[in-house]
Amino acid sequence: MTYYQHKIIKNKSISEVRTEVESALKNEGFGILTEIDIQATMKKKLGKDYAPYLILGACNPVFADQVLEAEPHIGTLLPCNVTIREVGTGEYEVAIMDPAAAMSAVNNPKIETLAGEVREKLIRVLESVE
């Protein structure tokens, strides 16, 4: 089982792709809790150049509540990360984590069911970004 799914978006800026991703996430009940700008962080901390690369920590509060109720330590696996990174001139990869793969180690049937539902939502997000 792979731990992520992805797609390539062409002929858009990273800000355009980000706007689409955030809109698609919102349509599925997610908000952005965290953002990590890998390009800026690596430049500041290591003096190393990176292509644009964002990690968005997405959270659907309804599902987060349900999984935290079922498994209090599940917070170590939250939020659901979505990445946007430059892979070529005018090309960006949008990748989503697969919550079912990430949470399979928990070995809790209720979590497996919820993770599958969240996975379906994130796949719809990925599919809707053009």
Rank of each mutant, 00 (worst) to 15 (best):
K110D: 05
E93M: 13
K10N: 11
A105T: 14
T113I: 14
E22G: 03
A95S: 15
L54W: 08
R85I: 04
L126M: 09
L114G: 01
Q5V: 01
G88K: 12
V129Y: 03
N27C: 00
V125R: 04
T19K: 15
K45R: 14
A64M: 09
V129R: 04
I74G: 08
A70S: 15
Q66S: 13
A105Y: 06
L46M: 15
L78C: 07
V106K: 06
L78R: 03
Y4F: 13
E69M: 10
M97K: 12
M97T: 13
H73I: 03
V17C: 05
L68N: 10
Q39R: 13
R119E: 10
T89L: 08
E127M: 05
K12N: 09
I9N: 07
M42C: 12
A115V: 07
A102M: 15
F30D: 02
I32C: 02
G90T: 04
I9W: 09
E28I: 03
L33K: 07
A95D: 04
S23K: 14
E22F: 02
I9C: 10
L78E: 04
A24I: 01
L68K: 10
T34H: 09
I96K: 06
L54D: 04
E71H: 13
V106P: 09
M1R: 11
I111Y: 02
G47L: 12
K12G: 04
A105G: 15
T19H: 05
M97E: 10
S104G: 13
A64E: 12
L33M: 15
A105H: 11
L46Y: 14
C59H: 03
T89V: 07
T76S: 11
I38D: 00
G57Q: 05
Y3F: 14
L46C: 13
A100F: 02
V118K: 09
N81Y: 00
I55F: 02
T113M: 10
F30T: 02
P99V: 11
L78N: 06
E127I: 02
K12S: 10
P109I: 10
K110W: 00
E112W: 00
S15N: 14
V82Y: 00
V125E: 02
A24E: 02
E112N: 15
Y3W: 12
E127S: 11
V17S: 07
Q66W: 04
Y3S: 14
E71R: 06
E86G: 08
E71W: 09
D37V: 02
